[in-house]
């Protein structure tokens, strides 16, 4: 079990250039749990994630870890506690899987010192967890979308942080790979106690995989808590504007959102 760091965003107001996207958001990330941020496009979920992962400097308010403002912690030191997988990282041309995963070791490496035993072990462990050891010497270009995403997550794992932020890690993936990635992240959380915070588009996968959900609407936090407690048709209606009904997922028992739409309803008379 990894050590716990109380991670909080206090009264965050943030955005890009002149546009303010988040308005006075307070968030406290539960340690050793999987938290998922949901909300409609443009509601500020990515902005919140990026602000917490210190990619965006908030206009006001601050993000703290163990009570200490993150902008006061040296960047490399912070990177040993807090990892990030951006939505669209860049693959350098001709890079191999092992080289890419190895780049996650940057915050642990000293100037001009070669690779340590810990570096090698962290990389091989990360590749094992993500099931990509067999691809170690392959070029990233040769891999499928799902395999690539596993390589990126392995890079973030090699960083060996207690907290891992992921910005839409399942976007552009087929449903099979989405489930595979989320299962692997759950393994990681259960086995090592890594605190995971991510933005997901799919509300039903969010409800199944999250221990804790943060629901954003127009730059404000409107609800948070266990999926079974907060994912209701009225919440979904208020944040997505979607008329829906919520049932229990027959596999996991978690809430499952079913859109109603204007056609196809067998229950039209009753609804």
């Amino acid at each position: 079990m990894k050590s716990t760091h109380a991670f909080k965003a206090d009264h965050i107001t943030a955005g890009y250039d002149q546009t303010t996207i988040l308005h006075d958001v307070n968030v406290s990330i539960p340690s050793n749990k999987i938290s998922i941020i949901i909300g409609a496009n443009g509601c500020g979920k990515s902005t919140l994630l990026k602000t917490m992962a210190r990619l965006i400097k908030p206009v006001s308010g601050q993000v703290t870890i163990g009570g200490k403002p993150i902008h006061k912690i040296p960047s490399k030191q912070l990177a040993r506690v807090l990892g990030l997988l951006p939505q669209t990282p860049i693959v350098p041309e001709g890079i191999t899987v092992a080289d890419l995963v190895g780049r996650g070791r940057f915050p642990h490496q000293k100037f001009l010192k070669g690779w340590s035993k810990e570096d090698y072990e962290a990389v091989s462990e990360a590749m094992e967890i993500m099931n990509i050891t067999e691809f170690a010497d392959r070029h990233i270009d040769e891999l499928s979308g799902g395999q690539r995403q596993r390589v990126w997550i392995a890079m973030a794992l090699a960083q060996q942080t207690d907290i891992l932020f992921l910005d839409e890690p399942t976007t552009y993936l087929d449903i099979t790979y989405q489930v595979e990635i989320l299962d692997l992240l759950t393994d990681l959380n259960r086995k090592y106690g890594t605190t995971i915070v991510m933005v997901l588009h799919d509300i039903n996968l969010s409800a199944r995989y999250a221990d804790h959900i943060f629901a954003l609407h127009e730059g404000q936090l409107v609800a948070e808590g266990q999926p079974s407690k907060i994912v209701t048709s009225s919440l979904i209606e208020s944040i997505f504007g979607l008329h829906c009904t919520v049932i229990n997922d027959p596999i996991s028992g978690s809430p499952y959102v079913i859109p109603i739409g204007r056609h196809h309803s067998k229950l039209r008379k009753h609804s």
Partner: peptide, 14 residues
């Protein structure tokens, strides 16, 4: 690290 994009590089502490 920068070769992986600015966001990834910042995440790695650059």
């Amino acid at each position: 690290a920068l070769a992986l994009g600015d966001e990834a590089a910042k995440g790695l502490g650059v």
